[in-house]
Design a protein around this nucleic acid. Structure first.
Length: 605
RNA sequence: GGUUCCGUAGCUCAGUUGGAUUAGAGCAACGCCCUUCUAAGGCGUGGGUCUUGGGUUCGAGCCCCAACGGAAUCACCA
């Protein structure tokens, strides 16, 4: 914020002049003045007492006096204990507003060719079932993190590693062969990912039935229950068949590969629809079927360098006890890859494709340990960004009765959730009855924007690290601290601006400095200006919730203003114009902020 | 058991690098405000030992230690 920087410099100068001491900008603690006190910014003088060797009140008084005499930004000041409250001059506020008004993307830093290249991995689904609420949180966070990184002047590559191979896909394939009758998305009318998901469930159902039967049989033969279950799982013919299928897949069996390809295509088509509805996308997609063999080479390379060691059975391990962690398996005794190896392989390919400076993985917090290990391993293997990789770890979405469990049918399906949100937004819209003048297409579009806004804001306003609760019974609100509340305020401002234009009022590029401002108006300018700092802060810790909460605060404050003051009915022309410019910039900033969260803004609602 | 994360109002959540007698929003409850730029709004009332106990200091919801409670993870699964 411009005024803050000016003041910080002035305060440093003041201390130099008064006490002949140098202080750094970090030592100057300027914060927003609390509402109960008069002033805009407050300097905490406690840190300077050692320098001034005077009482807090006197020190504050001296600095305040100096600032008032030497800076035209300060109109007046007051001192309460060790707190120096500074009142900014109206002219400085107007100048600040003019400055903000002149910048289309206020608060954003445009990336250049020399900006750091940040790769952000998110989504990363398995291809055996449709996306659920947990994935939605992941996707929205990933997209938002990418937008925030870009707004802070990074070159961003959004990437997705699709887990398209493995035993889980074989289960769906096998069930489709055995229990389906050639059903396709076209013939069934189901989305591809849902179709495949249904067969995954079917596999599980038959498998469990088999295990139950076999367990009973083994127990009849005299085994205890635990051992019997164990053996039943291992001996289940269905599971054996799935494993055989996986082996065939690995040996490039033509028939299996063809089925695999066909079914994956269905799933991708389904995912694409969901991604589109969520408004997310990727610059580069990797598939595990392409990368899962790559890690081996790197691991063997590391083995030769003595970074890892081989056990008698031929398995390869990394000893991380020196880093306070355990030993970690990298290659099985049969030489095949594990999860960790695949991530190393993916990293290798990515680095070949892009000169990455920084890697961000948007992955749930259940994998904290995995990424801690991955970071160390990549570093050992010589990846420059390995040590500094960011695991953007987010908490799970919980339901009132605990975690989502697909077996218990308590997963919240992404597509259903999206449809339900839009439906509710439509219903609320219709009940409000204010949009009689909209045609059907516009109504649907507004319902989509608002419904998605509600969903996105709900998931993003919460601190990403924390587990959060979603109650399907209560559904997502449209009132209070919600996306629609912010969208609504935006739509109202846009409406006012349209009306102003219709009335022939010209909104100027710059305002005259001699408008008289109310306290509320000054507060809002200050709040709008804060946006730049908020974006920067969010960029440091990739924090969408910071943006969301800022937008809410600003909108809340603006709403009070909106009710308290008239804008178009204002008699004083200069003031009317000022309020229009102010409103326009409030709208601009909240639109920019919401865009970082992937939330669209309706012109009317 | 080891490691990591979390614990703020009945519920869901904010709380910037430690700052001001009175720790904030929303929901839910109860009042008031649509002849006034969009009531998906505004104003008000009630509701708290910031899990507990120590410590650090001018000053702690925030930092340190311990306890209690909850979550995740610790596979030749991904």
């Amino acid at each position: 914020m411009k005024i803050e920087q000016q003041l910080t410099a002035a305060i440093i100068a003041a201390i130099k002049a008064l006490y002949d001491q140098d202080v750094t900008a970090e030592q100057v603690q300027l914060s927003k003045t609390k509402k109960e006190f008069e002033g805009h910014l407050t300097l905490v003088v406690f840190p300077f007492l050692r320098i001034s060797k005077k009482k807090p009140e006197d020190t504050a008084q001296e600095i305040g006096q100096y600032l008032q005499n030497n800076t035209d930004v300060i109109a007046s000041f007051n001192v309460i204990k060790g707190f120096l409250n500074l009142v900014i001059s109206p002219a400085a506020w107007v100048a600040l507003l003019n400055d903000i008004n002149a910048q289309e993307k206020y608060g954003f830093t445009a990336p250049t060719e020399r900006s750091p290249l940040v790769m952000i991995e998110y989504s990363s689904p398995n291809t055996n079932k449709p996306l659920h609420l947990g994935h939605v949180r992941n996707n929205l966070l990933g997209w938002a993190v990418a937008q925030i990184a870009e707004a802070n002047g990074n070159r961003v590559v959004k990437t997705n590693i699709v887990n398209d191979r493995g035993i889980h896909i074989c289960k769906s394939m096998l069930a489709w062969q055995k229990y389906g009758n050639g059903e396709t998305p076209e013939s069934s009318g189901k989305k591809g990912d849902h179709l495949i998901g249904d067969y995954y469930v079917a596999f599980d159902k038959h498998f469990r039935a088999e295990v139950k039967e076999l367990t009973a049989q083994y127990m009849a033969e005299g085994m205890d229950e635990e051992a019997a279950t164990e053996k039943a799982k291992a001996e289940s013919p269905l599971m054996k068949e799935a494993r055989e299928m996986l082996v065939k897949w690995e040996h490039n069996d033509r028939e299996v590969r063809e089925l695999w390809r066909k079914m994956n295509e269905w799933v991708y088509a389904g995912f694409d629809e969901t991604y589109k509805a969520l408004g997310v996308g990727f610059d580069k997609i990797y598939y595990e079927s392409d990368t899962y063999l790559e890690g081996r080479e790197k691991v063997i390379e590391g083995l030769q360098k003595g970074l890892f060691y081989k056990r008698e059975d031929g398995s390869v391990w990394a000893d991380l006890t020196g880093e306070g962690l355990d030993e970690k398996l990298l290659l099985r005794s049969d030489g095949t890859s594990v999860y960790m190896t695949q991530d190393i392989g993916t990293a290798k390919l990515r680095f070949q494709d892009f000169p990455i400076n920084k890697m961000v993985y948007v992955v749930g917090n259940e994998q904290n340990y995995h990424f801690q290990v991955l970071s160390i391993l990549l570093d050992k293997l010589g990846f420059e960004w390995g040590k500094g990789l960011v695991h953007f770890s987010y908490g799970m979405v919980e339901l009132p009765n605990g975690k989502m469990k697909s077996r218990e049918g308590t997963v919240v399906d992404a597509d259903e959730l999206v449809a339900e949100m839009v439906r509710q937004a439509r219903q609320t819209s219709d009940e409000a009855g204010k949009f009689a003048d909209m045609d059907e297409a516009e109504k649907q579009e507004v319902a989509r924007i608002v419904g998605m806004g509600a969903l996105k804001y709900f998931l993003l306003k919460v601190d990403a690290r924390k587990n959060m609760l979603f109650n399907p019974e209560e559904s997502i609100d449209f009132n209070g601290n919600t996306g629609p509340f912010i969208q609504y305020t935006y739509a109202r401002i846009r409406s006012i601006l349209r009306k102003a234009q219709d009335a022939g009022i010209v909104i100027p590029e710059t305002l005259d400095a001699n408008v008289t401002l109310s306290t509320k108006e000054e507060e809002i300018i200050q709040h709008v200006a804060e946006f730049a700092q908020v974006v920067k802060t969010a960029g440091v810790d990739y924090s969408p919730s910071t943006i969301a909460n800022y937008c809410y605060e600003l909108v809340k404050e603006y709403n009070q203003f909106y009710h308290e003051f008239s804008i178009l009915r204002e008699e004083d022309e200069a003031k009317k114009v000022f309020r229009l410019v102010l409103s326009k910039n409030v709208a601009k900033v909240i639109r920019l902020g919401m865009s970082l969260l992937g939330i669209e803004m309706p012109e009317r609602m």
